[in-house]
């Protein structure tokens, strides 16, 4: 439901019109870092590291092969689970969305499953798949696939009937109609879904690694909690934020490009009464 609300074109339009230039945002970032730094200096405690201590700890950790292996593990599992969630969710959702009866059958069930906090289900993944990357990746896939499926299904339900009738009158088959009519129509929503799914998948992976990962950044975080190494924890949080933000910004850029190309175009001047 969240994903749908965030992917809704009207919400996006309104968000875009409300957004503005980046000066104030930079001021907030600067103030946040300054407050962190000042707080750490005033506290003068091992519990509150300064930003430079955190970054130095991160550099030290990145020099260790075992830590680099953990980072690569997280990235590898993230890429695999994200791509599978995006593809499976988009294709199955679009195929279902163009069939109204089966949409009415399946979508309420999918929404009900989406209501259950997915995090409560992850012990089941570990019971069946064991500890390790397979169960963490499967849980990350599960966290991302349902929102993507719902977004694609709702978008496909909204494909204009006239376009489908035209395809039928031209005797376009069930499979060919997907690339010719359905995909171009659902692309803007799917692009928004790609962005949202990334966040859900990464969140699912980090939580799974924290709970029962045998490697990965989540497991490194918990290892440092046991050792009470705050500067290492803070450095790893910075790394995780960077790993999340770079693809997220790329996906936001991709969404804008797709929306410009496939999204609804403004009506020509004078076409409205």
């Amino acid at each position: 439901m969240t994903a749908l609300a965030e992917a809704s074109p009207s919400l996006k339009r309104r968000t875009r019109t409300i957004g503005g230039r980046g000066g104030p945002a930079l001021v907030v970032a600067f103030v946040a870092v300054a407050v962190w730094w000042a707080g750490a200096v005033v506290a003068d405690s091992a519990v509150v590291p300064t930003p430079d201590q955190s970054l130095r700890s991160l550099v030290t950790e990145l020099a260790q092969p075992s830590f680099r292996a953990s980072v690569f593990d997280t990235l590898r599992v993230l890429v695999q689970s994200y791509l599978s969630a995006a593809v499976v969710g988009a294709v199955v959702g679009a195929l279902l969305g163009v069939r109204p009866f089966w949409s009415r059958v399946a979508l309420p069930l999918a929404y009900a499953v989406n209501t259950v906090p997915k995090v409560t289900l992850f012990p089941i993944f570990f019971v069946f798949l064991g500890l390790g990357n397979l169960s963490c990746g499967s849980f990350a896939f599960f966290s991302g696939v349902l929102p993507m499926f719902l977004i694609a299904a709702e978008a496909a339900r909204g494909v204009p009937q006239a376009q489908l009738k035209l395809a039928a009158s031209l005797r376009v088959g069930d499979l060919r109609v997907l690339p010719m009519v359905v995909w171009p129509a659902v692309m803007p929503a799917v692009a928004a879904g790609l962005r949202l799914t990334f966040g859900f998948t990464f969140l699912g992976l980090i939580v799974a690694e924290m709970f029962a990962g045998s490697s990965g950044l989540g497991q490194q975080l918990l290892r440092n909690v046991a050792l009470a190494r705050m500067e290492y924890i803070a450095g790893e949080i910075v790394l995780i934020a960077l790993l999340a933000l770079v693809p997220f910004l790329l996906l936001t850029w991709l969404e804008r490009r797709i929306s410009d190309r496939f999204g609804p175009r403004p009506a020509p001047r004078g076409s409205r009464p």
């Binding site: 949202l196 980090i206 803070a234 949080i237 934020a241």
Partner: peptide, 12 residues
């Protein structure tokens, strides 16, 4: 906000 796994802050 939701792109960054906020639970990474929990151990801290």
């Amino acid at each position: 906000f939701y792109a960054v796994p906020i639970f990474a802050l929990y151990p801290l």
